[in-house]
Design a protein around this nucleic acid. Structure first.
Length: 440
DNA sequence: TCTGGGGTCCTAGGACCC
DNA sequence: TCTGGGGTCCTAGGACCC
């Protein structure tokens, strides 16, 4: 077969797909309780505080994401809205099932969130000549195997795939699958000129406002704005968006999920709490669940931050919020150590006489466990410029022949870790020439 | 004591995402 | 009465060093 230039271009063209489960939490609940089908359903956040997922029926009533449940009660009575407490174990299990199915369609997969997944389809055009075909196949298989409704969007960049997905969701004409990479020019332009710029992935409330003030109101207008101007006026993020909308891919598929750089565990209390023992109990439990996450990615952290706050919505109450960072002399993922550090910090910031609503911990200075092994050499609290430390490092290098060394420092105000890589194993090093990687 | 530029690291804050 | 819980990236400015 003779290939034409157009064939070659179409073979080399990148195509991204974005598969996204509709109203994910609600759909998961419906998968196990068909009585909920065709009824207005919301799933509520922790403590049944606010709506974190809405069925289409509820969205049609104008209920916004994050609306407090107490503000919805009248509407709920009026329209018989079913409200469910969230069940994250179920959602995460369903998510895994969906992702497993998606991996059958491409080896290049980026799990972007609990209900969304990018697929890289470049090079697979022989297997799937028409993206629309894969789109419908994905939809029907996920529907059949999990009962979940999915929409699929295709585009030459992740941003366009995301946009295509939005169109597939909102415009019934597309029947759940939209391919912007392969669409008649007129239709493409007319779509882009009717979609508001605020719908673009990466344009939030503020940027939407600023773009509007600059006269950029549609996706088409944003795409046709010179990227240099976007850079000058809004910075590199918006410049990238401009390129992405033109079909020039700036955001790569991230197939390997990077380990977390910080791990947060925090919750609002069901009721206001004022006693230190009660808050301590919560903080201890948040800390151990954060530590568990830390261990599951084989990491250690070298600092833990603790914060508490009163209820900012109760404007007439005395308000107090504070946080403190407790450095760990030795990077660790040990629950007992971390809990001890957390409770120590909590005692420092706790003030009696306030009604507390929320507390949490953040694990920081996260790095892989292998570095922790290095730290067993016990070099603490030194300055990496001191010649004394350098000679110790040299001795260690000569003795153990490593090509990477890590140094930890835990000070009163901050703690840090320094890592020297690409050293010559077994030899004295000219430290000035060794690149340093810092983590805090 | 004054003078000055360049570089790195750290932090806080702002914006975004789900 | 009742208002989620995680995350990421970028930038500006200060501290500090040479």
């Amino acid at each position: 077969m003779v290939m034409t230039i157009n064939d070659i271009i179409s073979v080399n063209k990148q195509i991204f797909a974005l598969a996204d489960v509709n109203n994910f939490y609600v759909s998961c609940e419906r998968a196990f309780n068909p009585n909920l089908l065709n009824r207005p359903v919301v799933v509520l956040s922790n403590n049944d505080g606010c709506a974190v997922a809405r069925s289409n029926e509820v969205k049609a009533l104008g209920v916004k994401m994050g609306t407090p449940w107490f503000q919805l009660k009248d509407l709920a009575k009026q329209h018989s809205i079913v409200a469910l407490s969230s069940n994250y174990t179920l959602y995460s299990d369903m998510s895994n099932r969906v992702m497993t199915i998606l991996r059958d369609f491409s080896p290049h997969v980026e799990v972007y969130s609990i209900d969304e997944c990018f697929l890289g389809l470049q090079g697979l055009v022989n297997l799937w000549p028409i993206p629309m075909g894969i789109g419908h196949k994905i939809r029907s298989r996920i529907r059949q195997w999990t009962s979940l409704p999915v929409c699929v969007g295709f585009g030459a960049t992740k941003t366009l795939a995301k946009l295509a997905n939005l169109i597939a969701k909102k415009q019934p004409y597309f029947n759940g699958v939209c391919d912007l990479s392969n669409m008649p020019h007129e239709q493409f332009e007319s779509l882009l000129s009717t979609i508001e710029v605020g719908e673009v992935w990466g344009v939030g409330r503020k940027l939407n406002q600023h773009l509007n003030e600059a006269g950029i109101k549609t996706v088409q207008a944003l795409r046709d704005t010179p990227t240099a101007w976007l850079r000058a006026k809004f910075g590199v993020v918006m410049e990238r968006l401009g390129y992405e909308l033109r079909g020039i891919s700036c955001l790569a598929l991230e197939e390997l999920s990077a380990p977390k750089k910080q791990i947060i565990s925090s919750k609002s209390f069901g009721q206001l709490i004022d006693s230190l023992p009660e808050i301590s109990e919560s903080v201890a439990s948040y800390t151990s669940s954060a530590a568990e996450k830390l261990r599951s990615q084989n990491s250690v952290c070298n600092a833990i931050q603790i914060f508490i706050q009163t209820n900012p919505f109760r404007e007439h109450d005395k308000q107090y919020s504070n946080c403190i960072t407790v450095p760990l002399p030795n990077a660790s993922s040990d629950s007992r150590l971390l809990v001890r550090a957390a409770l120590f910090g909590l005692k420092r910031i706790y003030r009696p006489g306030y009604a507390y609503k929320k507390a949490g911990v953040i694990l920081a200075g996260i790095d892989s466990e292998e570095i922790y092994q290095d730290s067993l050499f016990g070099l603490y609290g030194a300055d990496d410029r001191s010649t004394k430390l350098m000679s110790v490092l040299d001795q260690i290098n000569q003795r153990y022949g490593c090509n990477t060394l890590s140094v930890y420092s835990a000070g009163k105000k901050k703690s840090w870790m320094m890592r020297r890589e690409n050293m010559s194993p077994g030899y004295t090093t000219n430290w000035q020439d060794v690149p340093i990687a810092y983590a805090h």
